[in-house]
Design a protein around this nucleic acid. Structure first.
Lengths: 331, 331
DNA sequence: TTGTAGGCGTTATCAC
DNA sequence: GTGATAACGCCTACAA
């Protein structure tokens, strides 16, 4: 059903129909009602392609997210959808893990006439290219550069988590997730502050899934002098790591403390509920939308706005908050 | 950059540019090359709104999925994205849990000119309405009615899982997830086949998340005569249920067997790895795309095609496959 | 082989 | 208040 058909039906012009549908005050009340009624009757819905073409906007925002298989990102996308909806936008999401090339993914989105782009995260090498697109952009998990971004204070998240473990009496703490992340630098900072050292062999790099956590923990348990606690890159890896501890016939947290980042829902329902750091998804999504929407149609901007969100420690069981610190110290 | 600009640049007509870009044999080789080169140079990308408007197609498929917060559905969406990509389509997904009203969600998708719709699942009351839209449709988790659909044999999945527990010696088996699902009827059928009975109080209905599993199991454990095994509506509920067992100071599977459906990734990394039934996501997604794409542009069909996918039992630890059946029998 | 002309459904600018 | 009319960018007869 098109405006044209409604116009025919009512023997008026298309222009009037268009105005009436948009509740213009210029159109007579009686005509307006007739049009609205007719539209309702025929279940009229504007053709978005035509609206887009005419307006030069699609009311669609592209979202590049690393993977839907990761509960944190799936949740985040969910929240982004919700936040954008409040602004009349819809999210068109392409997970980069299936899209192959990142730029190809962006191009696929671009071909859909997106009005803006949310990218979580970005590789630095794609960054200049993205800016050259002249498209409203907002990033998350990318604090550097001259861009609008929303980020949780990752370094701080590593710091508070580490300090919590130290506070529980842990002296030998390992870290899974590579040596150049912000979370890691927070870890480092906390150790330094408390005069603690770590060891090369307690630091493991690798991916961020269950399997990597499991593998890393296996290796760590085989060490002659293993740590008493492991901080994992994210909750997924932490869960994998816990499983490795169980498989070795040991207990979490009695024999080994394991903690992660993200606060995914399942962490709360494990044998030993996971101690972790909350990265507030709804808030991140809200801020992303808040930054992006005004840029669409508005000026393609001056100075970048960076929103930093505070991480929040979630203490549950897997850190051994209940343990005797002396026992740990002597182990 | 538009075709018009390219035409100006090269002093030829827009029509020729259009033909050249689509590699029409009608255009001279040299002109074609010039156009392509120029398009490349200016990074020309067709305006999808215009293409859609002209072609009456958007190369976008709407996907209605219940929730991204559920790993199974997030994965499934992922696979659907991948499958559609192979056909040149992109998925526009709206999780119905945030969209509010189902029909509103469909309308939002419709306004985006989707060429087809994948709905997982559908409520029966919306079904006739959907058909009236005259839009290529494919469903999953909806085996009835005159529609194209892709479904795992849910009754069978309940049957094989129940029979597996029976085979392990369980005589008292409960079911979480309501009394009128196909999975439940499979459960019932397996009990009947083996001459086993269940009890009202061992059957719990409720939602499908962690929390519901936890609550249900708590109630069950408080029963004077509890079952020895619980089949949960899905893996999420099963994980919640396991947590309740742990919280009660008991063990899975030594004191209580817990199993689920879906085979979500995390099930493999629990303290007691979850016994479950695999619902092959990639295959479901593939079939959905296979059914839908030909319907788009093609005839709006004759007889419905129903693809039934076989469920597959995944035996891990939480069912107590290792336990002595005598001990169970006497308990 | 290339160009002209009309249409897709909507919005916006004018006259009337 | 209302109705022509042009424009958005692309596609496709049909004409040249």
């Amino acid at each position: 059903m098109t405006q044209r058909r409604i116009a025919q039906e009512l023997n008026i012009s298309i222009a009037t129909v268009s105005l009436a549908l948009r509740n213009s005050p210029k159109v007579k009340e009686s005509t307006r009602r007739a049009v609205l009624e007719c539209a309702e009757k025929f279940d009229y819905r504007p053709n978005q392609a035509a609206v887009s073409l005419s307006a030069g906007k699609s009311f669609t925002v592209g979202v590049l997210i690393s993977s839907l298989r990761h509960p944190f990102y799936a949740d985040l996308l969910n929240e982004i959808q919700r936040a954008l909806r409040d602004y009349g936008y819809i999210a068109l999401c392409l997970p980069t893990d299936i899209a192959g090339d990142y730029r190809e993914a962006v191009k696929a989105l671009l071909a859909r006439n997106i009005d803006g782009l949310i990218s979580i995260p970005v590789k630095i090498e794609d960054y200049a290219w993205l800016r050259s697109l002249n498209l409203p952009l907002v990033f998350s998990e990318h604090q550097d550069g001259e861009v609008d971004s929303v980020s949780v204070d990752r370094k701080k998240s590593g710091f508070i988590l580490t300090e919590h473990l130290i506070g529980l009496g842990h002296l030998k703490i390992g870290f899974l997730g590579g040596g150049n992340s912000l979370r890691f630098s927070g870890f480092r900072a906390a150790l330094d502050k408390h005069g603690l050292a770590t060891r090369e062999e307690w630091i493991r790099s690798g991916g961020d899934g269950y399997e990597n956590g499991l593998r890393a923990m296996r290796e760590i348990l085989a060490l002659p002098n293993p740590p008493t606690a492991l901080i994992c890159h994210n909750d997924l890896a932490a869960i994998g790591a816990m499983r490795a501890v169980y498989s070795a016939g040991k207990s979490v947290p009695d024999d080994f403390a394991v903690v992660g980042f993200d606060n995914i829902a399942e962490g709360n329902y494990l044998r030993s509920a996971l101690t972790t750091v909350e990265y507030p998804r709804a808030e991140i999504a809200q801020k992303l939308a808040e930054l992006l929407v005004p840029k669409i149609g508005g000026a393609l901007d001056n100075k970048p706005r960076k929103t930093i969100i505070e991480p929040r420690l979630i203490v549950r069981e897997s850190c051994g908050a209940c343990l005797n610190r002396n026992r740990l110290a002597e182990s």
